[in-house]
Amino acid sequence: MLTKRIIPCLDIKDGRTVKGVNFLNLRDAGDPVELAAQYAEQAADELVFLDISATEQKRKTLANLVLKVAATIDIPFTVGGGISSIEDVAILLKNGADKVSINSAAVKNPELISNLSNQFGSQCIVVAVDAKKIGEKWKVHLVGGKIQTEIDLFEWVKELEHRGAGEILFTSMDHDGTKKGFANEVLSRLSEENNIPIIASGGAGNISHFVDAFTIGKADAALAASVFHFDEISIIDLKHKLKQQQIAVRI
């Protein structure tokens, strides 16, 4: 049986791992390569590296870090942050990334997703979608949630699947950093309306939040950062608890 994935996210700024509350007030949580190896050891199913400074500073790639990570760990990992062209993706994949995550560039140029999936295959194209509830609508946001667009979340994800995205990394800006749980209703709707895997992101605070993301939210994977980085939740513990709730996990 395909298992639900637990994915620690390493936010990277200037080569170091950081995680802020609502993307602000960054705290240092260590060396990314070392942290990655530790997570692989602790039964993390996958890792995501997001260069949170990339979009703002137009920094192109994390190529060197990717190479170091690929040499060290033996589980899959995704790299994102400021990726905006076929060339960016080619370098990251060539250096050993399994998947890339595209965010703002997909909104600015949706054709990029079609081109990337044609060139590299859907399996390595993750699209990160940040959204926030504005009135009654969920609107897509850009630049780490700072810029609101008029794009409807649900229509956008359908378009992304149609264009060949292999997976959606959905972050609710309303939940991110709150530690009050994932956006389960939205997640469940995304999962029902689309036929590609959905990663839940934003809001993990305790183990029952993960249970809810998989049962109520029907997510295929759940991503979190600070609860793992600061050892508030151990991945092994989490997986044992999920298993007790009849959720299929890799232990």
Partner: peptide, 27 residues
């Protein structure tokens, strides 16, 4: 089912030297 299948699944019915020291239902 969702396509692609993405993630860790078990393998079983292992019957080959390729799977020496691999337990049935390994991920």
């Amino acid at each position: 089912v969702k396509v692609p299948q993405m993630g860790w699944n078990t393998i079983s019915g292992l019957q080959n030297p390729l799977f020496n020291n691999i337990k049935n239902y390994e991920f």
